[in-house]
């Protein structure tokens, strides 16, 4: 025997099923879809929050890295500046020391020179006196005081020239 369909009941089933689907589509499925949409929204917001948090963490890490880099550069700059200041101070102190030593040296030179001149004048005087005394011994008292002084001075002058 071939295919057979219980026609009245099948038609009844068909129409009833269509009505059932329409009713479900109108009232039941929207509620189900709403539930599923809410679930999807929850998952979406969860994933988005996680993504945002991940992005924020990455950004924060980047910011921290930047801040560290900046601090490192600042520290380097401060260090260089401090070294520069120290060098400047060292140069200044050295300059001052050099100037001071130069001053002391020049002052000492001036004093030596003065002492030298003074000693020479004194020596000249003493040589002249000795020469006069020697001449007096040689020529006795033939020459007066003034003449013998002149002669002595001339002798001293000559001896300086000879020198």
């Amino acid at each position: 025997m071939g295919l057979g369909i219980n026609a009245p009941l099948f038609i009844s089933q068909l129409i009833t099923f269509i009505i059932l689907i329409v009713i479900l589509w109108r009232w039941a499925f929207p509620a189900l879809f709403k539930l599923l949409d809410q679930r999807e929204a929850t998952i979406r917001s969860g994933v988005e929050n996680a993504e945002r948090a991940r992005r924020e963490i990455a950004e924060a890490e980047k910011r921290v890295e930047q801040m560290l880099e900046k601090a490192r550069l600042e520290a380097q700059a401060s260090s260089a500046k401090a070294a520069q200041a120290a060098e400047y101070m060292r140069a200044q102190v050295e300059q001052q020391a050099r100037e001071r030593s130069q001053q002391i040296f020049e002052q000492a030179q001036r004093q030596i020179s003065q002492e030298f001149e003074k000693a020479r004048a004194q020596l000249r005087q003493e040589v002249a006196d000795l020469a006069v005394q020697a001449a007096e011994h040689v020529v006795g008292s033939s020459l007066d005081q003034t003449t013998s002084r002149r002669l002595a001075n001339e002798f001293v002058a000559q001896s300086r020239e000879l020198k």
Partner: peptide, 13 residues
Amino acid sequence: VIPGIETIGTKSA
């Protein structure tokens, strides 16, 4: 609830 269940089959005397 599916149409055709128990209504489609082989004819039988």
